[in-house]
Simulated scan of single mutants.
Amino acid sequence: MKCKVFRLRVDGEYQAEDEEHLNQFLEAVKVHQVHSAFVGAELNYWSVLIYYDEIVQEPVKDSINSALTSEIPLNSMQKKLFDILIKWRDTQAEYENLPAYVVCYNQWIREIVTMPVKTLEDFKKIKGFGERRIKKYGEQILKIMEVYQKIS
């Protein structure tokens, strides 16, 4: 069992962002216990301690695209782009202090490079890659893909 501490700032400017990080985390783990306390300081916040186990994500079987892309081998260009997007995802996760799978599952990245995704609308075809992720990461991913296509 692991534990992680979250700080949920009460200030409206940060509250939604902090709650979103916590919700992303909670969706990806099995929670055993939660403890919270309000901390009144210069910046009022809730301190939340979560005891959890990681959940190993299996490829989604009920999605035709997911099932097909998990079986299709990547060609050399797709593999290079996949590796670049994995590095981006890991860097983004570190920047946001999140587990990498909360930012983007490997399977989603695989689908992005095999479809391929060319517009923000294309992300909607990836099961689980919802509006929030499209808004938050879509432009970055498209820019990476655009630059990769120019240098390839």
Results as ranks from 00 to 15, higher is better:
87 K>Q: 10
47 S>L: 14
20 E>M: 07
15 Q>C: 07
38 F>M: 06
106 N>L: 13
52 Y>N: 07
104 C>A: 11
112 I>C: 13
124 K>E: 15
4 K>E: 10
44 N>A: 15
40 G>Q: 13
112 I>M: 15
77 M>R: 15
65 N>G: 09
116 P>I: 01
114 T>W: 03
102 V>Q: 13
108 W>C: 07
69 T>K: 14
42 E>R: 11
108 W>I: 06
69 T>G: 09
75 N>Q: 02
32 H>N: 07
69 T>L: 13
39 V>R: 07
92 Q>F: 06
89 R>N: 08
107 Q>F: 09
59 P>K: 03
98 L>C: 00
83 D>G: 06
21 H>C: 06
94 E>V: 06
107 Q>C: 01
29 V>A: 01
27 E>G: 10
131 E>W: 02
60 V>R: 12
89 R>W: 10
5 V>T: 15
41 A>P: 00
9 R>T: 00
52 Y>A: 05
113 V>P: 04
51 Y>M: 10
50 I>M: 08
104 C>G: 03
98 L>K: 00
99 P>W: 07
45 Y>F: 04
62 D>R: 01
10 V>F: 09
81 L>P: 13
44 N>K: 15
27 E>K: 12
36 S>M: 13
136 K>A: 05
81 L>T: 09
79 K>Q: 15
107 Q>M: 05
86 I>G: 10
122 D>L: 05
41 A>H: 08
44 N>I: 09
54 E>V: 00
124 K>C: 12
79 K>W: 11
74 L>V: 08
85 L>P: 10
37 A>I: 00
78 Q>A: 06
41 A>Y: 03
4 K>P: 01
62 D>Q: 03
108 W>Y: 13
69 T>R: 14
49 L>W: 11
109 I>S: 14
97 N>H: 05
100 A>D: 06
26 L>D: 01
95 Y>A: 12
75 N>R: 01
84 I>K: 15
45 Y>L: 01
74 L>C: 04
85 L>I: 08
136 K>I: 00
104 C>E: 08
72 I>H: 14
123 F>K: 07
8 L>R: 04
30 K>P: 06
32 H>R: 09
64 I>R: 14
146 E>M: 07
102 V>C: 13
132 R>I: 13
24 Q>Y: 15
111 E>R: 03
73 P>Q: 15
89 R>K: 10
21 H>D: 11
65 N>D: 13
62 D>E: 03
128 G>D: 03
126 I>V: 06
144 I>N: 02
132 R>K: 14
95 Y>T: 10
72 I>E: 15
39 V>H: 09
30 K>Y: 08
54 E>R: 02
15 Q>E: 10
61 K>Y: 08
36 S>I: 06
5 V>N: 12
110 R>W: 11
15 Q>I: 00
19 E>W: 05
128 G>W: 04
5 V>S: 12
42 E>K: 11
39 V>T: 08
137 Y>I: 01
18 D>E: 02
54 E>L: 04
27 E>S: 12
85 L>Y: 08
95 Y>S: 11
131 E>L: 13
111 E>H: 05
96 E>P: 00
97 N>M: 01
66 S>A: 14
42 E>W: 11
142 L>T: 02
140 Q>P: 02
66 S>V: 08
102 V>I: 10
135 K>L: 07
93 A>Y: 01
118 K>I: 01
136 K>Y: 03
43 L>V: 08
85 L>A: 06
107 Q>I: 02
29 V>Q: 00
115 M>H: 12
96 E>M: 05
54 E>H: 00
87 K>M: 05
92 Q>N: 05
12 G>R: 09
